[in-house]
């Protein structure tokens, strides 16, 4: 089976819903080790994405079109580092998904392109208490699931589970990238807000895939 444009749109809407729902939690996480704006920034960004989606006269032709709309909107409305990071992730993912549907391998390509975008933009690697700590295990788990013959929804689920574990594993880490790095050792003991929001967004992809089934 494959996931289509309707899934992509549903994923984006579900992402917006979960980001809005977890706004306060993300703000609190970012307050602990950053500037406290992550929840509000993502809420503003995804709210703008919804407005753009609603204003479309015709549904997007490809999954890439959906992801590109998300990319350009987040870049101009999020405001914090999450704007260019997620923006580049969605942009690279869009380039990897120029068709109207994706199979399991396509889902892996999407996630790997997203990870690549975040790494290229943020120049971070795993273990630095960033979004990469959620996305990297997610892409790896997705690739493994796909190789094992899993359907797209199960590939996404493997990715989301790995992202959750990766986010949780940022707690003891000391940040060396981004605003949290100014705290040095004091950044340890807190969940990274970017890793947490990455997990939420990947979980939204799973929920949308389950609804598409």
């Amino acid at each position: 089976m494959t996931l289509d444009v309707a899934w992509a749109v549903d994923w984006v809407r579900a992402s917006a819903a979960t980001v809005v729902e977890h706004r306060d939690e993300l703000v609190e996480l970012d307050r602990q080790i950053g500037d406290g704006d992550h929840g509000e920034n993502l809420k503003r960004g995804f709210t703008a994405v919804l407005a753009k989606l609603d204003a479309l006269e015709a549904p997007p032709a490809t999954i890439g079109d959906v992801l590109k709309l998300v990319a350009t909107t987040l870049m101009s409305t999020v405001g914090g580092a999450a704007g260019p990071l997620y923006g580049t992730a969605y942009l690279r993912a869009a380039k990897a998904c120029g068709s109207s549907s994706v199979d399991s391998a396509g889902v892996v390509a999407l996630l790997e392109a997203g990870l690549e975008g975040i790494v290229a933009r943020g120049k971070a690697t795993t273990g630095e208490k960033t979004m990469v700590d959620a996305w990297s295990p997610a892409a790896e788990a997705a690739a493994k699931a796909s190789a094992d013959g899993a359907q797209p929804a199960q590939v996404l689920e493997a990715a989301a589970v790995a992202a959750a574990a990766g986010a949780e594993a940022t707690v003891p880490l000391v940040a060396t990238k981004g605003r949290a790095s100014y705290l040095g050792e004091r950044s340890a003991g807190h969940l990274d807000p970017g890793a947490r929001s990455s997990q939420l967004i990947l979980e939204a992809a799973v929920a949308a895939a389950d609804r598409a089934a």
Binding site: D37, T72, S76, T77, V78, G79, G80, G83
Partner: peptide, 13 residues
């Protein structure tokens, strides 16, 4: 800043 005058960076700007 952002279009609304708040703190942040705006791609289009």
């Amino acid at each position: 800043g952002m279009a609304d005058g708040g703190l942040g960076t705006d791609y289009e700007h």
